[in-house]
Design a protein around this nucleic acid. Structure first.
Length: 406
DNA sequence: CTGGGATCAGCAACCACATACATAC
DNA sequence: TTGTATGTATGTGGTTGCTGATCCC
């Protein structure tokens, strides 16, 4: 059954908007998300071709289908015989690109219907924030110039070269950027964002002023992209740790899913660089100010780069919204099996998977946002002790700036 | 075994206001 | 029947405070 657009109810839906929790046809996507600046910032991705309900996170090049994480699991597990399929990560975009632009973003989609441009939505690619210089600071008046953020795709089995990626993603870190290809022959199962090659930190590049304009606050940490990539929201990740915690899924005590002995250097380096974002020490031993947080950005960009779009549209909210422990982000997803000879016994993994899926199913009945516009408003409203305040009154919490007015 | 205090988790209430919805004309 | 104007109800998130459960002495 062809999923119909949740807005017009007539056209086949192709796009999933997580903010609106809605699947839309291209026309309505463009129409709806050109309404205002907030909706233009909604990040959308393809709809899963299989279930038609969830946002797709990967594209199976063999089947020529876009799949959400769940369908990817089900369709590419060892039992299905499709575990060797090459898959490509699908990222999100925002703004209102034309169908032609979408075709360029998602070159693997050949049947993108033509969509008439909305008069109130400036044409897309010209507004893409892929210019290197634009990465430094996207806040303020330049916001209108970054209406379209297009995420790249990364071929998992055949990682693109840095040159190949550059035009699409922009350079998040200039020449200092390390493209971190994923391991070849991506096995079946969830996609891992963990770099398979050690992150090579080049301290010289941090000292020569190359990144002096960069500030971690301005960086797009793209943790949302992490969600997009894995089809797993932070809520889900949090839930992995609630109740009995991750142990309940993977019986970590008995059989740790992460073989810390295998990649200790990578994980430790990343964590040490990432976690203390606001307490990182400068070379002189002083507390680092914002301009000295570049290594954090560098590392985070490195992590997300191969699979994510560096949108440059970050905010404190984005970081908060993530709610994911950095160590988790740096490491493999909790369900990740280190490999065919991974430390998890097959039975344990299956049971863990079963429990995870059961919980995931249960979550389907969790709170649904009925009105995204109201949520968007609430997300930016100032408060006093958690309560909304009248416009102009003193506040003690501003979701946008995390500052007080007094 | 019982009672009292400390601690914790879960939950409802609160706030302003844009917007959905109902009603009247 | 359709369009417009007006009034009412709803929903949104962070914080606080209340309540019940649990633990320890």
């Amino acid at each position: 059954m062809v999923p119909l657009c949740g807005f017009c109810g007539k056209q086949r839906s192709m796009i999933y908007c997580r903010s609106d929790a809605a699947s839309l046809c291209l026309s309505c996507d463009r129409s709806v998300h050109s309404a205002n600046a907030l909706s233009r910032r909604h990040r959308r991705t393809l709809l899963c071709d299989r279930c038609g309900l969830q946002p797709a996170s990967v594209r199976c090049l063999e089947d020529n289908t876009s799949l959400c994480q769940n369908c990817d699991w089900n369709g590419h597990d060892a039992a299905s015989g499709a575990s060797g399929h090459k898959r490509q990560a699908i990222n999100c975009y925002s703004g209102c690109p034309s169908s032609a632009e979408l075709s360029r973003i998602w070159s693997f989609i050949i049947d993108i219907p033509t969509v008439a441009a909305e008069p109130n939505c400036e044409d897309g690619l010209s507004m893409m924030t892929i210019d290197d210089s634009d990465v430094t600071n996207h806040h303020g008046a330049s916001d209108d110039k970054r209406l379209l953020e297009i995420a790249n795709t990364a071929l998992m089995s055949d990682p693109p070269s840095p040159d190949k990626l550059k035009p699409l993603i922009g350079s998040s870190s200039g020449d200092g950027f390390d493209v971190l290809p994923l391991a070849t022959d991506q096995p079946a199962g969830p996609v891992s964002a963990t770099p398979k090659v050690p992150y090579a930190r080049d301290d010289n590049k941090f000292n020569d002023g190359m990144y002096e304009d960069l500030c971690v606050d301005d960086a797009d940490l793209t943790f949302e992209n992490y969600e997009e990539l894995f089809g797993t929201s932070h809520i889900r990740i949090e839930e992995l740790f609630d109740d009995a915690g991750i142990d309940s899924y993977f019986e970590m005590k008995e059989t740790p899913p992460f073989d810390f002995n295998e990649q200790p250097k990578i994980v430790q380096l990343q964590c040490s660089d990432v976690v203390p974002a606001d307490c990182a020490m400068s070379n002189t031993g002083e507390r680092a100010d914002s301009s000295l947080c570049i290594p954090v950005r560098q590392v985070r960009s490195s992590i997300s780069h191969p699979l994510s779009g560096l949108t440059g549209e970050s905010s404190a909210g984005d970081h908060q919204d993530c709610g994911v422990s950095p160590i988790l982000l740096m490491g493999e997803p909790p369900w990740y099996s280190p490999g065919p000879e991974g430390s998890l016994a097959g039975g344990s993994r299956d049971s863990a998977l079963t429990r995870y899926k059961e919980k995931k199913k249960k979550r389907m009945f969790d709170k649904k946002i009925r009105y995204a516009s109201r949520k968007a408003r609430a997300d930016v409203r100032k408060r006093v002790k958690g309560r909304f305040i009248k416009a102009g009154e003193a506040y003690d919490y501003d979701p946008l700036s995390q500052t007080r007015s007094y």
